[in-house]
Amino acid sequence: MALLDVRNLTTEFVTPDGARLRAVDGLSFSLERGEALGIVGESGCGKTTAMLSLLRLLPHAGRIVGGEVLFDGQDLLKLPPDELRARRWRDLSIIFQGAMNALNPVRSVGDQIREAIRAHLPWPRDQVDRRVGELLELVGIPAWRAAQYPHQYSGGMRQRAMIAMALACNPQVVVADEPTTALDVMVQAQIVDLLDRLRRELDLALILVTHDLGLVAESCQRVLVMYGGRVAEHGPVEQVLRAPRHPYTQRLLRAFPDLSRGRELVSIPGAPPRLSELPAGCRFHPRCHLAADRCRTEAPALRLVGPEQYAACHFAE
């Protein structure tokens, strides 16, 4: 049995005038210990909403309207709120997008990590202090810097501190939402290496949510491509990157600035759909060069197109 098994997760937002917008529509995937899954998509594809749904941290207007999130066989969506609060961070934690800018500027970094531990574990003070030092060392920050304040840290160190905080209670699954966005190129490479090392050393199951295919290529074993709230393609990273079957994945890969192809700039015509104007049938059909009548009316199901590779396209083979 997989460590994390997400089945048919569906999330909607209710607008002030009562309209229901489906941000995530039937998302399914599973994750094993020590495995990294990349969830890739463009803005508004539902990737962040899906992750907030997993942890039941949706903003007020969001509702999970269907599906299951099985952690070790138990459905997190059915847990009462206080039990969930106790499990969150100890089983599953998240590094939020832009989190390095969310540190409280008037409290020391160590203090803020200490708070994350004490909110979830009934440890005595000295044990908590020891743990803070351990965590910082684990992410490559000298323990003495726990007493320093966020402004004394560089951007890369703040991101490391956020990773330390996510690891505070020894979670088995860590979700990282755009963990390298807004960092310098060299610091990005350092953070990618760090996450990869932590995954191997701690046998973490890692979900990397990103728009950056390069990050996925370098640090994930499996990839799930989302478009318009649905899964477009899902499979082993090397296979999907080498032989993408969904037209969206194919064109997204071509739009990636890859120097091995020579000087070629390729884009996908049109723009990703807005939640309030999702097209009928296949969500990608208005931008797809293969689109036929059937695509405009009938939503394609996700089906097996290769060993462990799935694509949701009527024409994928």
Binding site: Q188, A189, D212, G214, A217, L241, R242, F256, D258, L259
Partner: peptide, 13 residues
């Protein structure tokens, strides 16, 4: 160093 960390999608490259 900057060139070496440019992501490459093809694992062989």
């Amino acid at each position: 160093a900057l060139v070496s960390v440019i992501p490459r999608l093809d694992p062989e490259l």
